[in-house]
Amino acid sequence: MNDMVVTIALPKGKLGQETIKLLSVAGLPVEGVSTEARQLTFGFPRESLRYIVCRPTDVPTYVEHGAADLGIVGKDTLVESGADVFELADLGFGYCRFVVAAPRRKWEEAGGSLETLLAGSRRVATKFPRVAARFFSDLGQQVEIIKLHGNIELAPHVGLADLIVDIVSTGRTLKENDLVEVKSIFQATARLIANRVSYRMHHERLQPLVEKLRWASYNLGEKRDFHILSS
């Protein structure tokens, strides 16, 4: 069983570049691999490795079903997916935060209190309905969640929603849209995940890869000392 081909799901988009860098530092083959090309699978028979390139939101799905043994994905996407997978390492890159944001004027009118704000505003636009629902239900607040697929900051502008739950990395987009961060929910970075059956069944084959990737993430010096709030 130790010559089995290991499939690793890589995310397209903003985590793609750093992911490939990580693989390369870990000593895994990356020749010709791109997460932004038309080619979606890259095989390396000599190393018995195969990469598949997917949309970040699909990485947890591929791994949960065992179509990929390992995967690299942002904690934000992982939490939203609710997938039942092993979370094996914090890879350090792709830092972002989940926040609740509101239009500046409304926030000022509410006197800087989330409760007052929620008294009159119940519609929350987000790409992450699960994270948003959990956050507000933990607060004991009932809200109406509107699922969007992108450019969430547009929603309050046109009156589709009163609040948004979104991820921010620098906060520039919020500022440009006259939104203010009202509350931080949790912080996220890229994670190495594994299928729960595969990790147990092919432990001898996967564990060295996991160790290499962990080691590489330390060496990339991306490890920062941030406090992860309970999610």
Binding site: V85, F86, E87, L88, A89, D90, R196, I228, S230, S231
Partner: peptide, 16 residues
Amino acid sequence: RVKEAMVGKDWVRLSY
């Protein structure tokens, strides 16, 4: 919280 991390197989959270 430790129990939740163990049951959820969340190694990262356990280390934190």
